[in-house]
């Protein structure tokens, strides 16, 4: 029934000092479609790839507005993301009600971290299966944070999460030095380039599958979708990914589309099996 003796209970350590349920939650984030975030001295932007379950279905929302100065991109279980974003909205409103102040970005992120950590230490529950990129602007300027299912959160200049997001990070690591002084359009262009690198071969960024979230010092958080995206997509020389890794490579194992019927869901299983093999070796 279990692949591993230490799989079932979130609070039970493996002898190697690991908590497998937390690692599986992290895998869930890697299966969500990609999201990219980056910031300059004046703005922070989010870019996300929306996914639809079929020709007849709409695209799943990837960006959520929390408050006038705050927005998030999600990767992983959408329903878990709804719990966390609702919580963030509550915290934002509480700050405005009690202190007449937009909540400082670090605080709402820390509150999410505290909430996620509880689920890694109490039995009977499970960690949130979602990762967040949070952008916001407050008195200290624009911010970008990443939140993980294990309760950690990090401050970034640029970051990506979700399926094939390593490709986006590779792009961001090569170009991040120009971000601080970049104009908003340049920032978005870099973000779109990074997002494009997460695409599978033959896929491209379109007005349907792309979402952009923009926030700045004195500029409220705004989600750009649909026809308005044309202006930003035209900043790219080509919307398809020129350097996409060939299908079947390790990265491509995380499929963007849900697996076809009958096809085994290999992503998590392979990872777990590899670990088991590793554990046996160590024993």
């Amino acid at each position: 029934m279990f692949r591993n003796q230490y799989d079932s209970d979130i609070t039970t350590w493996s002898p190697q000092g690991r908590l497998f349920q937390i690692e599986y939650a992290t895998e869930a984030v890697k299966q969500g479609s990609a999201a990219v975030g980056l910031r300059s001295k004046t703005h922070a932007v989010l870019l996300a790839l929306k996914r639809s379950s079929g020709e007849l279905a709409s695209y799943q929302k990837k960006l959520v507005k929390i408050d006038a100065h705050l927005g998030v991109a999600i990767a992983g279980l959408t329903s878990d993301a709804r719990v966390l974003t609702t919580f963030m909205r509550t915290e934002s409103m509480r700050s405005r009600l009690v202190f007449d102040r937009p909540i400082p970005v670090h605080r709402v992120v820390a509150a999410v971290g505290d909430k996620a950590q509880i689920n890694t230490q109490r039995y009977g529950g499970r960690p949130y299966g979602v990762g967040l990129l949070v952008v916001g602007a407050d008195d200290a300027g624009p911010h970008l944070y990443e939140c993980n299912p294990n309760g950690t959160f990090y401050d970034y200049v640029a970051m990506s999460i979700g399926a094939r997001s390593q490709s986006a990070r590779t792009y961001l690591e090569k170009t991040y030095q120009g971000f601080a002084d970049a104009s908003l359009d340049d920032l978005i262009r870099h973000g779109l380039h990074a997002l494009r690198d997460t695409l599978q071969q033959e896929k491209e960024l379109t007005v349907l599958n792309t979402s952009i979230g923009i926030v700045g010092v004195g500029k409220p958080f705004e989600i750009v979708e649909g026809e308005e995206l044309k202006r930003y997509l035209s900043l790219l020389d080509s919307t398809s990914n020129p350097a996409a890794p060939p299908a079947g490579s390790a990265d491509a194992a995380m499929e963007d589309a849900p697996p076809a019927e009958g096809e085994p869901q290999v992503a998590v299983d392979t990872a777990a099996e590899e670990r088991q093999a590793g554990d046996r070796m160590e024993e």
Binding site: V98, F99, D100, R101, P104, H106, R107, D138, D139, A140
Partner: peptide, 12 residues
């Protein structure tokens, strides 16, 4: 985190 409560925050 670099934020400090001002008079308007304390008043609220």
């Amino acid at each position: 985190d670099g934020h400090k409560l001002g008079p308007r925050n304390i008043f609220e």
